[in-house]
């Protein structure tokens, strides 16, 4: 009987595949709103999760990764988003942080003062001196011993090279309303963008790092307390460590992009993205039509960088989302 069940199951899969494929092809893809359209709400912090084929050729994808980050920064700026987090599980982006920085300097620095390029990028939190991601030891209380959260952060200043922006298809520089806070800049000058680069290490391992720091603090405190009840770790305390200056805050919207699309790219998996910060993050929808039939072509090639349609579609999803916050 089990062979019969397997046979019928295979039939189900064929029908399911036919139905979903037909739906994808027959549905007229709705064109997302332009980048600078007036949306009802806009994320202040966008996360971009880049998914790579684990067996891909590292050198081949480098350019695609850097290009994706550069595009995302450009579009964030055009749309008025001033914080961007980029993630890949293996940490390729972290090792490329110097290249990313160089590229962003080249793109966004004013062409006239090339000599001052180095001052254009400020690193308030993490001097990207080492190859891997690095975080300044942090100490909200002096008692917490240093620990690494593996978040590389950099700030990209607020004026863009116009030629490059036109090249990327961004027409307007006019800033639109911002949902919350942030420094208010003049309408024609974009605000600086903060970029965080993360890998899996910034997630569960960073939480374990925080636990170890708290453990060391308790060990140090113990002689002073002589048998009194030790303080219980508070959620707010952990948040302030993970989301403080050396960490990164909660993204409002996450966009998942597959560098090497495969037949199951349409299924959402978070690939080890830091769990603490995704409490209320909205997940963008992946509706790309072309995924499944490209799989036979160059699985080990450089892959596809982020495209603007995906980006705009994610912004539309966010604008349409209803936030109730438990109520």
């Amino acid at each position: 009987m089990s062979w019969l069940a397997s046979l019928i199951l295979a039939l189900f899969h064929v029908v399911h595949w036919l139905v979903t494929s037909a739906r994808r092809f027959l549905a007229i893809p709705k064109q997302p709103q332009p980048l600078v359209a007036q949306r009802s709400k806009l994320p202040t912090h966008l996360a971009l999760l880049l998914v790579l084929n684990p067996h891909c050729d590292r050198d081949a994808v480098e350019e695609t990764l850097v290009e994706s980050v550069e595009r995302a920064v450009t579009w964030c700026r055009a749309a008025g988003i001033n914080r961007l987090t980029v993630y890949d599980r293996e940490g390729f982006l972290s090792t490329l942080s110097l290249d990313i920085r160089k590229r962003l300097v080249k793109t966004f620095a004013t062409p006239s003062n090339d000599s001052d390029l180095e001052t254009e990028l400020e690193y308030p939190l993490t001097p990207p001196s080492s190859d891997d991601s690095d975080s300044r030891p942090l100490s909200p209380d002096s008692e917490v011993t240093p620990f690494k959260l593996c978040v590389t952060s950099m700030q990209i200043p607020g004026h863009a090279g116009k030629a490059r922006r036109r090249l990327l298809g961004v027409k307007s520089t006019t800033r639109r309303r911002r949902p919350t806070g942030g420094p208010v800049s003049e309408p024609t000058t974009p605000a600086p963008i903060t970029l965080h680069i993360l890998s899996r290490k910034a997630g569960k391992p960073a939480i374990a790092e925080v636990a170890n720091a708290l453990l060391r603090r308790r060990v140090a405190d113990r002689p002073l307390r002589d048998g009194k009840q030790l303080p219980v770790t508070s959620e707010a305390g952990i948040s302030s460590l993970l989301q403080g200056d050396s960490g990164f805050p909660e993204p409002d919207l996450m966009l998942v992009h597959h560098i090497h699309p495969n037949p199951t790219s349409d299924l959402l998996d978070l690939h080890g993205f830091p769990p603490w910060q995704i409490r209320l993050t909205e997940f963008g929808r992946d509706e790309s039509v072309e995924i499944w039939w490209r799989r036979w072509r160059h699985p080990h090639s450089a892959g596809k960088p982020l495209n603007e349609i995906e980006f705009r579609r994610a912004l539309d999803t966010y604008a349409a989302a209803e936030m109730r916050l438990g109520k």
Binding site: F283, R285, G326
Partner: peptide, 12 residues
């Protein structure tokens, strides 16, 4: 399309 603070560690 949110997790709303549900099983974050388990589902990431």
């Amino acid at each position: 399309r949110r997790l709303s603070d549900f099983l974050l560690w388990q589902c990431c």
